[in-house]
Amino acid sequence: MNVRPTGDVPHQEPIPVFEEATVDFLTEAFERDGYICDENIIVPVYLALRLQKPLLIEGMPGVGKTEIAKVISRVFKVDLIRLQCYEGLDENKALYEWNYQRQLLRIEMAKVKPEGDGPREYACERDLFSDLFSEEYLLERPLLRAIRSEERVVLLIDEIDRTDEEFEAFLFEVLSDFQVSIPELGTLKARFIPAVVLTSNRSRDLSDALKRRCLFLYIDYPTIEKEYRIIRAKVPYVSERLASQVATAVSRLRNDPEVRKKPSIAESIDWAKALVCLEADSLDPSVLKHTLNLVLKNREDFELYKKKEKVASLL
């Protein structure tokens, strides 16, 4: 989802630190940021910040899971560090890696004898070794960056369900103690506990151990009323009538068991934007026919809604 046009009234009150935010502050701040939600979402976010626990967010694609992390970072004006998960992601890509090539170069250079009778760069191999595993050769990846950060950050671990179970287990240390162990450097503890948000599309079940360490938030598709408010907040110049018609139509599409790919919130916003561009002030069969491909992105679904009675059911 996109950001509401900036330029709003600047926030005057001092921004609290994560653990001191209140439910009211969050509700207001989220609303101001254009993230429309109720206490079912605000309370878990509040608890995650207050109890300093990671927040695991599940839900269908496009309901605004990732957005929550972004909103938190904007509300508290802190950096967002994002770890995008994918199949085969391992700790080298997530935590840290030694710069192997650079280390090799160093070794090669150490072999070269300096010209003349000058002293060798390293008195013994041991010095070389301790130099090779110093921070100079350390490649920080998102998790380590979040842990070592000098100020508060939001750490977003996106689509955790795409990684394998092995990686999940590896995350435990980071998520429960906010520390990481690097054999050559020792254990590094976070100076500031980051706000951690994990998202999952439920393409597989996550392990109980991971869930135990997190607070859980399930985001469902919004109600018609809530979606109406979201569209009104996100799409400038949309008329009340159009917004409510779009919200209703999208909700009917989602409830139709024959529709295979349910439209997401992002798609309904795109749809409303497109309708505004086309200067449509309300939905009618011909407008629907030409714009329905913005929400139905599957051939079968699209064919299904070519039928007249199906189109009529959306109005």
Binding site: D38, N40, I42, A48, R202, F216
Partner: peptide, 15 residues
Amino acid sequence: GQVKAALAATLAKSP
């Protein structure tokens, strides 16, 4: 509402 949301977030961890 808050009590329910708080308990749900901590006690029920799948749909």
